[in-house]
Computed example of a mutant assay.
Amino acid sequence: MILQLVDEGPVELDAPVETYLPGVNRFPNQGADRDGPTITVRNLLQHASGIANRKGSTAQGTVSTSLAAGSQSVPGTTPWYSNARH
């Protein structure tokens, strides 16, 4: 679906996720400018966002817990797949 949106124009692969979901990818323990704002749509699709693999009790909890753990690599440098589920 994301690639269809890219093809149709409203989403750009190299745009920061922050463009479409403001504030969702902030690493609270590392400062507002650390990695989160630099994660692109492409990084997410390539499993190379650098977001840690943590599990929460809900989908939002999984995102929050993962971001609170900090980054595990610089976005776009290390592909890593996680099958974490809430």
Score class of each variant (00 low, 15 high):
G36L: 02
L21H: 07
D14Y: 04
G61P: 11
Y20A: 03
A59D: 12
G70F: 00
S49G: 08
A68H: 08
P16L: 02
S64H: 13
R26F: 08
G9V: 00
G36W: 04
G23W: 11
G36Q: 06
A84M: 10
Q4G: 09
L21P: 02
A84Y: 13
R34E: 09
L5G: 05
R85M: 13
A59I: 12
A84F: 15
A52L: 04
G56E: 11
T58Y: 11
R34W: 08
S64D: 13
G61N: 15
G61C: 14
F27W: 01
E12L: 11
Y20W: 00
G9Y: 01
P79C: 04
L5Q: 10
G76P: 00
T62Q: 14
T62M: 13
P16F: 06
I39G: 00
Q72P: 02
V63C: 09
N53H: 14
G76V: 04
E8Q: 11
Q72L: 09
I51C: 11
S49L: 06
R54V: 11
Q30P: 00
E18A: 07
S71W: 07
K55M: 12
G70P: 02
N53F: 12
L5N: 06
T78I: 08
T40N: 00
V17H: 05
K55Q: 12
T19V: 05
V41W: 03
R85N: 12
P75W: 01
M1K: 07
V41C: 01
N53E: 15
L44M: 10
T77Y: 01
P28W: 03
A68T: 08
E12Y: 00
T65N: 14
P75G: 00
H47S: 08
G31K: 02
A84C: 15
V24N: 15
N53L: 10
S57N: 14
G61W: 15
T58A: 14
A69R: 03
E18C: 05
L3N: 10
R54L: 10
P75H: 03
R42G: 06
G61T: 11
A68K: 13
E12I: 05
N83P: 09
P75I: 08
P75K: 04
M1P: 09
I2C: 12
Y81E: 14
L13S: 03
G31D: 02
V63L: 12
H86Y: 15
V11H: 01
P37Y: 02
F27D: 03
D7C: 04
R54S: 10
V41Q: 04
E8L: 10
R54M: 14
G36I: 04
G23L: 07
L5R: 15
A84D: 09
P75N: 02
I39A: 00
A15M: 00
T58I: 12
T65M: 13
L45T: 08
D14M: 03
T19N: 06
Y20M: 02
T19S: 09
R42N: 07
A32S: 11
Q30L: 07
N29D: 09
T38R: 12
S49M: 07
D33I: 06
V41K: 01
A32R: 09
E12A: 10
W80G: 15
H86G: 11
G50H: 00
V17R: 03
R42Y: 00
G61A: 15
Q30V: 01
Q46S: 14
V41Y: 03
E18N: 04
V17P: 05
R42L: 05
I51V: 14
N53P: 07
D33N: 10
R34M: 07
I51G: 09
R54K: 13
